[in-house]
Design a protein around this nucleic acid. Structure first.
Length: 128
RNA sequence: CGAGGUGGCAAGGCGAUCGCGUGCCUCCGGGCAUGAGGAAAGUCCGAGCACCAUAGGGCAGGAUGCCGGCUAACGGCCGGUGGAGGCGACUCCAAGGAGAGUGCAACAGAAAUAAACCGCAGGGGUUCCGAUCCAUCAGUCAUCCGUCAACGGCGGAUGGAAAGUGAGAGGAAAGCCCUGUAAGGAUGGAAAGGCGAGGUAAGAGCUCACCCGCGGCUUGGCGACUUGUCCGCGCUGUAAACCCCAUCUGGUGCAAGAUACGUAUGAGGACACAUGCGGCUGCCCGUCGCGUCCCCGGUAUCGCUCGAGCCUGCGCGGCAACGCCAGGCCUGGAUAGAUGAUCGACCCUCGACAGAACUCGGCUUACUGUCACGCUCGCUUU
RNA sequence: GGCUCCUUGGUCAAGCGGUUAAGACACCGCCCUUUCACGGCGGCUACAGGGGUUCGAAUCCCCUAGGAGUCA
């Protein structure tokens, strides 16, 4: 995920926590605030685990969110991992991210019905 | 074969698709190269580096603590000494001073850092028994008072009819006083060196032999230490209690700090008014600065990775840690923080512990697999 | 990332190296009351873990684990 799409400053996170709307499932919480730019941030606290597991969860979340970059409304997104996310598989995280985006109703019409492009591209490979 | 000991090595790799950080090139489409660890961890030590005054003085505080060496330095490493553990290979040890001083040693025990409670022994005095001797017709009992350290004696008085009152070898029993003694005494972590013999009234390093420890002298060693001597002595433990001695030690830490653009010893609020306040360490000196406190205060770049660096040599010196020499190599530098997802087969245990954040040298802790040994012990077979 | 500190019953806590580790609240049982509350009596349950020093450690030292605070 390129740097221009990242939410970086602590103040920006604080802004999203104050102004954003939140939707959650068992492993994740997603907050969205309206903005002209498109930025995503990931928050994984020390409760999730040690540095290795935290990094792993962050990488997986980044990979899950990447296909939707062009396909959702602009805004400030923050994805918070709950402690149970350490045990979740990549596939379940993928499902959760898609479910939360849908619940926020930010998916563009093209992607609302079908699978995202990146995932569609991976489908045939997985079937092999 | 089993149980150990020591030392080393590795930390899944390969291919495909998508994706990320950094560097270089670019025809701006992209391409090429490279990208976590042995502990990156804990932050327990030591340094570099930066700022604080040039890093200052004294006290306090802190750290280390057998010896020699290595190292930039260290609480690290190597080699040795002493002690402890193990049948052994081998391992472990904050291992200076208790003979400078202070403190503490609960409970138990006679007694706790210095004696004398019991005991043992000698002497004194008391009572009782008492062969025998003197005296005598008989020779005793009760109460009261005084006295001595004394439930006992002595002296006196009174009463029972009156009066008066000896000596004693030796023995016994109890309690008392003085002296000697530290052998024995159920305890305790520790009891005044141990054990045996002599010695004695009883005893005692009082004397002797052997042993243990300390000190002196002495042999060897740079030294810790060690060998001998028997010259002197017999001293509780605790310093991870205070302390003494020796050595080291200024503070803060890359959120250090520097630069640029905004421009600034800034805006707002509260309090105070120089024998004061703050910084440099806790205090004093010295020195620098001049209100103090609360709250708010942007972004970018540098610091930032070539370094006490890594690899090779059967190189040279050294037992070794390590040093020297020669040749070769460049090997993360992010800043919400880069290694992931999917597929394929392989090792067949589906891969443990675990992610750089200024950088090094160690220590400690977590943890998987494997190899070597002209290392040890035991069993079996030949 | 650096620095500083703390762990004692279920909770809050005291504790000079020396008995069976105070105390309060809570909980349980009994008494009191027609019953509950209050009160009284009794009980229950702990030194974060592992080593070391010491005759003896909750206390002193080291390591580990967990938890706080602080620095922009």
């Amino acid at each position: 995920m390129e740097r221009q799409y990242r939410l970086q400053k602590n103040k920006a996170f604080q802004y999203v926590y104050h102004r954003g709307k939140s939707v959650a499932c068992r492993d994740l919480v997603m907050l969205v605030a309206k903005s002209k730019g498109m930025k995503v941030g990931f928050s994984v606290s020390k409760k999730v685990g040690n540095a290795v597991t935290r990094n792993k969860v962050k990488r997986r979340l980044r990979e899950c969110f990447r296909p939707y970059l062009g396909g959702v409304k602009n805004g400030l997104y923050v994805v918070v991992a709950r402690p149970s996310a350490a045990e979740a598989t990549f596939q379940s995280l993928q499902r959760d991210v898609r479910y939360l985006l849908k619940k926020h109703n930010v998916l563009s019409p093209a992607l609302h019905q079908d699978k995202p492009q990146a995932e569609a591209r991976q489908r045939p490979a997985r079937q092999n």
